[in-house]
């Protein structure tokens, strides 16, 4: 019973041609194994959107199970052995990632869109990364834009508008009614 902390599709994505033309579900799983392994090692991945988002679920599930069951659980170890093709990463999973993500209440991974190449094939590429990684951040410097001049002006204008609305409605309605009465007479 895993509760994913990010939006999940009901149906799995079809990873067509993951291993060339004519590849099917077996090749899909092989590709996903490689991607999960790469994600756990590099902590940041650059791939097609569908590949990233499909990998995300498997990686998160693996980390969740590892956090819940620990490294003395036969099924969990089996699963880790299945998904991590390079075996030094099993140690990393239990000794680095489990302590890192123990108290997280959100997802363990982030997804970012990469811009499409123009002219190009029009494929949407993306970045999948583990949170709390040591690399320089992908989104450069998230600034507080609240105090930029334009934003300050807009916010004050909004406030003014709101204040006017608060005062006016009764008065306005009253005047309108009176005018109508005058017109009728």
């Amino acid at each position: 019973m895993n509760m994913f902390r990010f939006p999940v599709r009901n149906t799995p994505r079809k990873l067509k041609k993951s291993f060339g033309v004519g590849s099917g579900p077996a090749e899909r799983i092989k590709k996903l194994q490689m991607l999960v392994t790469a994600l756990i090692r590099n902590e940041r991945l650059e791939a097609k959107e569908s590949y990233c988002l499909e990998t995300r679920g498997y990686a998160e599930q693996l980390i969740q199970i590892a956090i819940r069951n620990g490294d003395r659980h036969a099924e969990t170890m089996e699963k880790a052995d299945y998904w991590l093709l390079e075996k030094d990463l099993v140690h990393k999973l239990f000794k680095v990632l489990v302590p890192r993500y123990q108290n997280y209440t959100t997802a363990f991974t982030d997804y970012h869109f990469l811009p499409k190449k123009v002219p190009g094939s029009g494929v949407q590429m993306g970045i999948l990364e583990l949170k709390g990684n040591p690399w320089p951040p992908v989104v450069p410097r998230q600034r507080n834009q609240k105090y930029l001049l334009t934003n300050v002006l807009i916010s004050t204008a909004k406030e003014e508008y709101r204040m006017e609305k608060k005062i006016s409605p009764d008065l306005k309605n009253g005047t309108h009614d009176k005018l109508n009465q005058l017109d009728n007479t």
Binding site: R44, H112, F113, L114, P115, I127, W135, P136, P137, V138, V139, P140
Partner: peptide, 15 residues
């Protein structure tokens, strides 16, 4: 909705 390609290029090199 995308990240800056130039800044990401720098990040990639540094990584």
């Amino acid at each position: 909705h995308t990240i800056c390609p130039k800044c990401y290029g720098k990040v990639r090199e540094e990584t």
